[in-house]
Structures are given as C-alpha cells and as structure tokens.
Amino acid sequence: MVKYTIKRILLAVLTIIVISMITFFAMNAIPGGPFNSEKAASPTVIAELEKRYNLDKPVGVQYILYMKNILKGEFGVSLKTGRKISSIIGESFPISAKLGLCAAIVAIISGIILGSIAALMRNKWPDRLIVFLTTLITAMPSFVMATLLLYYFCMKLGWVQAWTAGSHNIVLPVLALSLSPMAYITRLTKTSMLDSLGQDYIRTARAKGVPQLKVIFVHGLRNALIPVITYVGPMVAAILTGSMVVESIFTIGGLGSKFVSGITNRDYTLIMATTIFLATIMVIANLITDLVYKLIDPRISLD
C-alpha cells in the first residue's frame, strides 16, 4: 500500500509537469497575445510590456524561467490586470470549492438515497417516478438547468435575487450543479444495489436471520457503493474546480470563469496557474478514489 502510494504520487508529479509543459508551449503557439485590443496600443508600449514579463525571450527560456518561479512558489501576476495570481486563485477557489462541495454533497446523499429507494421498491411507483426524473435531468445540460432556475425562481416567482452586491446566494447554483450528477448517482446506485441484493452472501445473511435493515445497509449498500465511488472521485474534482457556465449565469466569481477568461485574454500566467492547479486537484482526486476503493473492498488489488 505504501509503496503503491509513493509510486502514484511520483507519477502524479510527472503528470503535472508534462501537463504544464504541453500547456505552456501550446498557449504560446496559438495566435494572439495578452496585449491585443480592438484599439491597438503603440508598439513601444507593447514592447515595454513584453520586456517586463519576459515575453521577448524565446519560449523555451520563458518556460524555464516560469518553472523556476513556480518552484519558489511564485505564480507571478496576471498580464492583463497586474493582480497577483496567488490572490486571484486564493479568492476564487474557495468560492468554487464551497459551491462544488455543497453540490457534491447534495448529489451524493440524495443520489444514494433515491437510488436505494428505487432499488428496494423496484417497479413500484416511487421507482418509476425516480427513473423518469433522473432520465429527464440527465438529458438536460447544466446551463439549461441554470437558466431555467434563474428564470423561474428569480424572475417568475421572485423568491431569490438574481444578483446581490457583495454576497452570493448559493442555493440555485448548487441545485444547478448537483442535479445532473445526482441523477447519475441515483441510477448507478440503483443498478449496483439490485446487483448486490441478488448475490449469494445476501441470501446467506438473510437465511442466518440478520435483520432486514442491516442486510440492506451493511451488506447490500456497502458493496453497491463501489461503482459509485469510482464516479464520485472525478465528479468531485470536476465540480470542485468550478463550472464556468453555472458561475457565469449566477454571476459568481469562481475559478471556472478565470480559466476561460485567461484563455480569451491570452493571460499566460493565469492560464498556466489555473491549469496546474486544476490538474493537481484532478490527480489528487483520482489518487484518493483509488485508495478509498481498497478500504471499501479488500478484494481490489492495487499492485
């Protein structure tokens, strides 16, 4: 286990380095630059800015300089705004993380409960209702969901403000973010719950007179959760790092929007920092998923 973990961590570091390299050279290869605008600034101004941020040097040299700074923990400043990258991420990630974690919790808890209900009451009306709703939700992209929520709750009903200065109302964005993974988890839980309830060890447990609830939750659900966990790891990472569209619709300054605006503006330092940051979270989430597997199901061999 320890050996495996160390190996995985080393691999993770390598992955991140490769990602950073690909991103750096790719973003420099695409046309456009950070100082472009509809009204062009004078060439002397642009030359001064390029010199300031080392953009006048060859790309290879730029990369080495950049990585040196990263090792010192310096992510530099945004080329567009001059704000520190570390404070940009430091401000926006907690917002995205709070939103993402809430959405993940909502999705996991309600997904597992609904999935279990559907499995236990198979072919009865609750099951049918759940299947119907989850199919509907799965088919709907989050931006459609977000727009609909905004339209009904803010405009039609007026229950929630569409925007308030200085604070965020997270109920609607959390809903918009969580519904789709919740639907997926529900279906996943239902399928694997049905599968595990039909196993021999369940029959054995029942034959031995183990109480019904214990059979379902200890023997059934625990085994049914393995496929769910496979999905949850990457899902958490994905919604933790922000959903650009949902953040944009609800005017929440999270990390997702930084990633996209970084690319549009060719804000090289912001692109690099967000990419490395998101990649790290993804890699960590995958690593944790693999390790949790092992804890839940001793049959899985990691080596």
């Binding site: 919790i105 909502v106 808890i109 309600s110 929630v160 308030t164 604070s167 965020h168 109302n169």
Partner: peptide, 19 residues
C-alpha cells in the same frame, strides 16, 4: 432527502430571503 442535503451545506451569507 433533497432539502436535508441542501441544508447540510449551511446557509450562505445572503440566505434565500429576497431583500
């Protein structure tokens, strides 16, 4: 189940009450 899991996140600063 939906409401509980939402509540588990804690209320945001603004809450859901419109001003």
């Amino acid at each position: 189940s939906m409401i509980l899991s939402l509540a588990a996140c804690g209320g945001s600063k603004s809450g859901s009450q419109p001003a």
